[in-house]
């Protein structure tokens, strides 16, 4: 692996920084360099938020990913995944939750959003809430989404398990297990899709 540039997208309050923290921990444990630009302040109040997460074997220069160079858009909200298309590399992957977060009056029709997502050849569109709910709690939805990104991250799965232990360990083994299961469920979805190709 040379580098992975990831745009994390969502709405303020949806917890994209917990995904960033998990990847970040796994990356640092794998001996990689990292820079991660976050959005703090006013936009966190229900506005669109994004984080530029850059992993590399070599030291990272810019805190921001150049347009057209991102390897992946990882989004917890379908419309938000589209907002960052100018950043995505032609061969990059768009991985997004399908459940809309509607807090504006002019939110577009769901199916039209899905049509746009499907125009991107490399995409994974998944209903993370339902998958997480089946496992026990919809709160693990973000970990399902992260799991779906796993096959493209070139990191060892054990490093993610360690990250979950580190992040959720204080809150009990049950939560670690649940999130690990969620991670595996997301991973399965992408692997199935790749097998079909």
């Amino acid at each position: 692996m040379k580098k992975k540039d990831i745009i994390l997208a969502g709405v303020g309050g949806q917890g994209i920084l917990s995904i960033a923290a998990t990847i970040g921990y796994a990356a640092v444990q794998s001996g990689l360099y990292l820079k991660q630009a976050e959005v703090h302040g006013m936009s966190q109040r229900g506005g669109d938020v994004q984080s530029h997460l850059r992993l590399s074997e070599n030291e990272v220069a810019s805190d921001l990913i150049p347009k057209g160079k991102a390897d992946m858009i990882l989004s917890v909200e379908p419309m938000e995944s589209l907002r960052y298309l100018p950043y995505l590399h032609k061969e990059g992957w768009l991985i997004t939750n399908s459940k809309p977060f509607i807090n504006i009056p002019n939110y577009p029709e769901e199916n039209l959003i899905f049509d746009e997502i499907k125009k991107i050849e490399n995409h994974v569109l998944l209903d993370a809430e339902t998958i997480a709910k089946d496992l026990g709690t919809s709160k693990a939805a973000n970990m399902v989404i992260l799991g779906a990104a796993f096959p493209f991250l070139d990191l060892e799965f054990e490093k993610f398990e360690e990250a979950l232990k580190f992040i959720f360990g204080k809150k009990g083994q049950d939560l670690v297990n649940l999130n690990t299961k969620a991670l595996k469920a997301g991973r399965q979805i992408t692997e199935n899709k790749l097998d079909k190709r």
Partner: peptide, 15 residues
Amino acid sequence: TKGEEIPSLVAMRPP
């Protein structure tokens, strides 16, 4: 350098 344009249906989401 640039990827695809933002589809026109993407709405603003102010705080």
